[in-house]
Simulated assay, not measured.
Amino acid sequence: TLTFHPVALQSQRLRRVLFAILAGGSAHTLLCWIALQLDFFRGGEALFYSLFAALWAGHILFVLFMLVGLNRRLSEPSMIMPLMVWSTTGLLVTALVVDQVRLCVMLIFFAIVQMGVLQASLRQFMALAGYCVLGYALVLGVVCVYWPEVVDVQGEWIQWGLFSAMVLAAMLVASEISTIRFQLGKRNQQLAEIVERIHDMAVKDELTGFYRRRHAMELLSKACGQSARGAYQLGVVYLDLDHFKKTNDQYGHGMGDLVLQRFADVTRRHLTNQDFAARLGGEEFMLVLPVSDPEEARNLVEG
């Protein structure tokens, strides 16, 4: 039996995202603080502290939303993509007001990508990469128009080209990871189907689809316990097919198998989700019927 622990997996993902936020956000803050000390941060201390207070407030808000999602046992942290967009927007805003270290600021984008490397799809990564690269180009355009005296225009665009090439390379890696994720997901699904098939073979009769004798007795024991506690009354029906041996002898075992399958199909139509049937051996069967009164069981069998 395969056992999955979704809460544990979510906790692991959350720890990875928290680490990426802490590492990337701290590096971003420290780098811009150094730029501020070197007088490369336009706007001064007032803009620096207000800007990073807003950025960190947003990070904390996203983390709180993810914690709420974890407590509700969501299958995936639902805020990963918005969080990456928010963090990338923060980079672009600070890239607009720093000089000399603009490329260093934008390189933190690769820490942002790490947050969703095992969760975001390739299409999401491509959209984020396009947003970052085009946003960086827009930032450079604004800086070149309004503050041309503080930038080396040619050098800045060369750096933009270098950054774009690095992002393209990262997206190729992301494409490989996405392919591997898809293949692993497909193999996991195939494995789950194989496990389910093996389980069915162990507990169900291959010909009729009814439970085998041993498993049926275990289920019957549990049903008797629940019935004894007053959950319901229990109807247990033992039956066999008349003249089945004669049918096998006269028409062959192939025809006998068809008779068993036809009987199983007809029986299954009249059973509810609470009922179950078992093949005890040969043409002998057992029906277990949780009912509200014996008359209900009698009507079901006679019908």
Rank of each mutant, 00 (worst) to 15 (best):
L83Q: 13
L83P: 01
M84E: 11
M84G: 03
M84Q: 15
M84S: 10
V85R: 08
V85W: 12
W86Y: 15
W86E: 10
S87C: 11
S87N: 14
T88D: 08
T88N: 14
T89E: 11
T89I: 11
T89W: 14
G90A: 14
G90P: 00
L91A: 04
L91S: 01
L92P: 05
L92I: 09
V93E: 07
V93T: 14
V93R: 07
T94H: 02
T94W: 00
T94K: 01
A95S: 15
L96F: 08
V98N: 02
V98R: 01
V98W: 02
V98I: 12
V98Q: 01
D99Q: 09
D99A: 04
Q100I: 06
Q100F: 03
Q100N: 13
Q100L: 06
V101T: 08
V101K: 03
R102A: 03
R102Y: 02
L103N: 09
C104K: 06
V105W: 04
V105T: 10
V105Y: 06
M106F: 06
M106Q: 15
M106Y: 05
M106T: 05
M106W: 03
M106C: 12
L107C: 09
L107E: 04
I108Y: 08
F109N: 02
F109L: 12
F110M: 06
F110C: 07
F110T: 05
F110E: 07
A111L: 12
I112K: 03
I112R: 01
I112L: 09
V113M: 11
V113K: 00
V113L: 13
Q114R: 14
Q114E: 14
Q114K: 13
